[in-house]
Design a protein around this nucleic acid. Structure first.
Lengths: 346, 346
DNA sequence: AGTTAAAATGACAACGCTGTCAATGCTCTA
DNA sequence: TAGAGCATTGACAGCGTTGTCATTTTAACT
């Protein structure tokens, strides 16, 4: 039942160490030896014991995924992306949900890292944006990859970052609305602690400017990445006392947009005839609203897979540098039924 | 930086083994010794190395969570519930998403178990219902806990099962609709491979029978647990050519119900004035539809925490039997705005 | 063929903990 | 107070791998 490296070595007629070399794809193994060992591995269906490898080796065979994100779809995509890479590389994934606001967070963090002797970490926003955390990790000396909102060129040291260009996405969405004739466009922002919020706002402003539309502070609602915030934000932007005459609303993400949709329904506003609404991320429920949301598609599972890829390229010293790692992802516009030609409100 | 059990032993002036006893909460340690050791542990901020524990010990310090479920909210809740228990017990969680239809599934499964030397497994539906998988696990001899739809009394050996009483939930929901005057109630079922589907259907039938309403096959749509299925199912049940005169629809779960809501909107049917719709599970997006869904609340994170609790009680030989483990959970009705008094259709 | 360097392989000691079993300390009884 | 018997502690091997370094084999030259 329990096959060890010794069994394989015996069957292959080589030493333990040579088997170790083969399964770790180390150089300096003759092709012939390699084949013999691999055959033995297959014949016995040998699975190296992770615990032993972790204990004996310098770096472990486990990576951590750290997130503080209430969005289930986002988290699942992130997990699956990283996990698929882990499986290929024979690593384990240790998931670590945590709360940024939690006082114990740092201690928790360190406990996790120490206990599992992690080879590296994938950090998702907003934790990936916290300098305090980055400093802590640098001090510990652990490898990590950060998922960030922005573009690679901006930051000086971005060798361990994967970027999502929210600026470009917001720019594209806003231009889409402008092309439909919208001039008074509201924006229900996400949490201001998230960099994606300021990036998206900046993209929106740039698009307005490109088309000579004045930026108007009254069109901005500072909210958070939640359905409820979308409801509140839309209600605020649309209420009669605010003579905004808004004809379109950007939701900070799909959830916010769904909330805005909900609010519009409460106010008997027809979508998209009277009001256009857009989201961000193209999460599953942007297809589960009525009408379906125009949004910016963001392949989180692919993004996180690249994050894992980048992490492995650092930890395992480029054992195999098969595919190129994409370091900046730009979401692409997906037009659905929640946006339409602007109603004339002049 | 790296504190080992030896450092603690030296500081405490005891042997390695005694420290081991303390951190494992083994009996036969004098209170005084225990305190001395614990102080040393705290002073050095000692974290036992999981890899070493796994390697040296008979059972490992990792449990697996296996799921084949497309519902992100469900999966996240399950993870968080199990994880919270793991944290308390110093265990790691290895997540294992898999596809029931995948041919490699079994091999994958075994690879995972072998590689990580898991102490136990938590299985969620529909995998937990597969006899083939159960047999496989029994053969391997690994501990596991199954999450099942049903009630504890039904099955002969249910000592390693946690039940969710979908029958009762469906009964309650159906009675709610009946009490509102509904007599012709449609049901868009989930995947027929899931036991929850037959349980919910049975609960629905029982409620009809209890109130002397005839069960009518035309009111049933065999679908799957997805938004799209909800759309299709509702469209089918509501189309004019089917002279069903349905005044209410049970969605197989919240996602299905959201789909049904979507379909109703397409057909310009007013909810709940013309049609009542209900879901199951009370997942977040039952609160993100318009109108919000009447559903059956099911605390998946609590349920999965109890599953983990049950698993630990088996593996660690009841080291501390603090809280009682609930083995059957009954979802409770949550009335929101998607259900209302039946329109008179006679 | 003889020499030398490089490539391939192997022997063996860690890694940090737990299981086993022996040794010691303590309590209680006669 | 001695001895039995249990509670508590410790010494040491071993879990299955990798790192180090020594050894053997191969290739590449005179």
């Amino acid at each position: 039942m329990k096959v060890t490296i010794n069994d394989v070595a015996k069957l292959a007629g080589v030493s333990m160490k040579t088997v170790s070399r083969v399964i770790n794809k180390e150089p300096s193994v003759r092709k012939k030896t390699y084949d013999i060992v691999m055959n033995a591995v297959k014949e016995l269906n040998y699975q190296p014991n992770i615990a032993a490898r972790n204990l004996a080796g310098t770096s472990s065979f486990a990576v951590g995924l750290v997130y503080d994100n209430p969005n289930a779809y986002y988290v699942i995509d992130m997990q699956n992306g990283v996990l698929s890479r882990c499986k290929d590389e024979g690593y384990e994934l240790v998931i670590h949900p945590c709360s940024y606001s939690d006082d114990n967070m740092e201690a928790d963090f360190i406990t996790m890292i120490k206990r599992s002797r992690l080879a590296g970490l994938v950090l998702t926003p907003p934790l990936s944006e916290q300098q305090k955390i980055i400093d802590m990790l640098d001090e510990i000396g652990i490898q990590y990859v950060r998922l960030l909102s922005g573009r690679a060129t901006e930051t000086e040291n971005s060798s361990n970052c994967i970027f999502v260009d929210d600026f470009a996405a917001a720019h594209e969405i806003t231009e889409h609305l402008i092309s439909l004739g919208h001039k008074r466009i509201g924006f229900v922002l996400g949490d201001k602690e998230h960099k994606s919020t300021s990036e998206r706002l900046a993209g929106y402003r740039q698009a307005l400017q490109d088309h000579n539309i004045n930026y108007c502070e009254e069109h901005i609602f500072e909210g958070s990445y939640s359905f409820e915030s979308g409801v509140l934000g839309a209600q605020h932007l649309l209420k009669d006392s605010n003579k905004n005459n808004i004809s379109a609303i950007l939701g900070g993400n799909d959830e916010v947009a769904a909330g805005a949709l909900f609010a519009a329904r409460l106010m008997n506003i027809d979508i998209p005839a009277q009001l256009s609404i857009t989201g961000f991320e193209d999460s599953p429920f942007s297809r589960q609203t009525w009408p379906k949301l125009t949004t910016a598609h963001q392949a989180n599972n692919v993004i996180s897979e690249h994050a894992a890829r980048l992490l492995f390229s650092k930890t395992r010293g480029s054992r195999k540098q098969d595919k190129e790692i994409i370091s900046t992802f730009t979401p692409s516009l997906v037009i659905r039924q929640s946006t339409g030609v602007a109603a004339d409100k002049t």
